[in-house]
Amino acid sequence: MSQSTSRTESHAFAGVLLDFDGTIIDSTEAIVENWKRVAAELGVDYREILRASHGRRSIDVLRELDPTKANWDYVSAMEAKIPQLSSKPAIEIAGARRLLEKLTRHSIPHAIVTSGSKALLDGWLTILQLPRAMTATTAEDVSAGKPDPEGYRMAKERLLQHRADEGEVLVMEDAPAGVLAGKAAGCKVLAVTTTHTVEQLKEAGADWVVLDHRFVGFETSTSPGDVCLTFHDLL
């Protein structure tokens, strides 16, 4: 199902995979505070960590900083503190709560695929009281983080396991690494311009780019089991 005008398109999908930080919430301030704490503990400049950490799993960053800290016990304990110790709570990306509520209300197959740990995801969902997706793929579930497609590929297989046909799956992302991962997993990608420019997202291969989730609408699908999404004011 596809129709388009100059700035609006509608497409049917069998499921939706959502990145979390940068796509559903913005926890930039909390992440900076966290890496400042870790940098002080390790005796390194936190600015060096920030330059290399965006969108990456903490365990991969720590492998480069101090391999003795690159284990899930340390990472989970560290990331569990991020929502608790943050002086500024994470900010919801505009339209994200409505999007999650509609996906849940209409029983649309959807999952979170994040570079954060389960402890970090659970912490933010609890504090912000956001709807929980049907399933989640977190940093512990994969052997390699984005732009490797493992996380999205794994989540896609879970969503489609009960379908006779594969159907098309939509990834929602904010970062080029995530766009690359989604495309490599065989998904279509809608990117929001919350952390990167339109040009950067399109260069990574995003199929569509919108400002934020306020420009994503739900329509009645003609295909059983699918959801029809309309993207308004495409950039």
Rank of each mutant, 00 (worst) to 15 (best):
K36T: 00
S58T: 12
T28N: 10
S58R: 10
K36W: 06
R47C: 09
S53H: 01
S53F: 01
G55F: 02
I25H: 06
H54P: 03
I25W: 03
S58H: 08
H54M: 12
A40S: 15
R37K: 07
H11P: 07
I25V: 09
V44W: 05
L18Y: 06
S10A: 15
R57E: 10
Y46N: 07
A40L: 14
D21R: 02
R51T: 00
V38P: 03
A39Q: 07
V32I: 12
R56W: 04
E48Y: 14
I24Y: 08
E41M: 12
D66T: 11
S53C: 08
V44T: 05
T68N: 09
R63T: 10
E64A: 04
D45N: 04
G15L: 00
R56L: 13
T23R: 10
I25A: 05
A39C: 09
D26L: 02
H54L: 12
A39K: 07
D19H: 11
P67R: 15
Y46S: 12
E33C: 14
V61Q: 01
A39L: 07
I24M: 11
D19Y: 09
G55S: 12
W35E: 01
E9K: 11
F20K: 10
R37A: 00
D45V: 00
A40K: 15
L17D: 09
N34S: 12
Y46A: 05
E29N: 11
A12W: 09
